[in-house]
């Protein structure tokens, strides 16, 4: 197991270097200049623009800028935002809890609904429920998040008035950001109803962000369960006279979970992608919102640093999944 873990860890180093190089190159290959965008149509002279470009080192050759960036990353310095002049790390740390909160809720929503749905669909294979569920899952997986989010807002917030339109908590509530997790910090607010407001603000973004993973998990669970239900040991269990729920949950589901766990790891990357759009629609103050802003403003340090930190997270989660997978399935450790 240790050798397996070390092998996985060794693979992280080239992945990490590749990510820094790729993010740096892609960002610099996209046309645009952070200094020009910052001033827009305003009356500034070429000299003023050149002086600022020099101040940020953007007048240096690209290879030199990259070496400087790599050196800074190695020292743990991700640089400062061109726009706010705040460090990339402090901005990330401030905003990331909001993204984690939303992503965890979306993942829980997807797992807690998706897995039972997949199991029931597999057990009732070929039934109207199976077709209906899988049809819905395909629709869910192919739903554009932006459209889906706006539809939910129009129906549930504007039309029915059941949920708030956007944000993390009602603007009337004063909450000091102690942990950064609103569901925790709301308990320290003097305003009654702050936590109810925080929960209500989570409902729509959770559903919107969780829809695609839910559909994926339901489909994978179903197909994995179908494979397992046809295995000899399941037939043996049934022949022994075990009750169907016990056969399905104890014998089949445990073995069917292995591919589902792998998919869960991959969903973290997908959730990050989805979070960028979901956060934009719901004005959710997480890193998605932050990265979109930095793309539009060509804020190179934020884009590079943000991409790198997300990559580290995805690599870390996938490593965790690999290790977990190794525990669940001893054959792959070799």
């Amino acid at each position: 197991m240790l050798r397996y873990l070390l092998r996985r860890l060794a693979l992280i180093v080239p992945t990490f270097v590749g990510v820094t190089l790729l993010s740096f190159m892609l960002i610099h290959l996209v046309p645009g200049d952070p200094i020009e965008i910052r001033f827009g149509e305003q009356a500034v002279t070429q000299e003023q623009l050149d002086a600022l470009r020099h101040q940020y080192g953007y007048d240096q050759p690209l290879w030199r800028q990259f070496l400087r960036y790599e050196g800074e990353v190695m020292r743990g310095d991700l640089g400062k935002s061109v726009v706010t002049r705040d460090t990339v790390w402090s901005e990330f740390v401030t905003l990331f809890p909001a993204t984690i909160e939303l992503s965890v809720c979306a993942l829980l929503f997807a797992v807690l609904l998706g897995m039972p749905m997949g199991v029931v669909a597999a057990v009732r294979r070929g039934s109207a429920f199976d077709y209906g569920l899988m049809g819905t899952a395909v629709t869910g997986a192919s739903m554009p998040i932006f459209w889906w989010g706006l539809m939910m807002i129009l129906v549930f917030s504007v039309g029915l008035g059941w949920t708030p339109v956007s944000g993390r908590i009602g603007d009337a509530f004063y909450v000091e950001p102690w942990s950064g997790f609103m569901l925790v910090d709301c308990h320290f607010s003097d305003d009654a109803g702050a936590c109810a407001s925080a929960w209500s603000h989570l409902v729509l973004p959770t559903i919107v962000l969780g829809t695609v993973p839910l559909a994926t998990i339901a489909r994978i669970t179903r197909s994995s369960m179908l494979d397992v239900l046809n295995e000899d040991y399941i037939r043996t269990a049934r022949a022994k006279g075990l009750a169907t729920p016990r056969v399905v949950v104890v014998h089949a589901l445990r073995n069917a979970l292995i591919p589902v766990v792998t998919v869960l790891g991959l969903q973290v990357g997908a959730l990050m992608g989805g979070a960028i759009l979901t956060e934009t629609i719901f004005s959710w103050p997480g890193i998605g919102h932050w990265l979109i802003d930095s793309i539009q403003r060509r804020d190179y340090p934020v884009l590079q640093g943000g991409t790198l930190l997300i990559a580290v997270l995805v690599i870390g989660v996938n490593l965790g999944v690999d290790v977990l997978y190794g525990f669940l399935n001893p054959r792959i450790r070799r």
Partner: peptide
């Protein structure tokens, strides 16, 4: 509960 929280103006 959601409705109450939603209309907190």
């Amino acid at each position: 509960l959601l409705s109450l929280a939603a209309t907190a103006a």
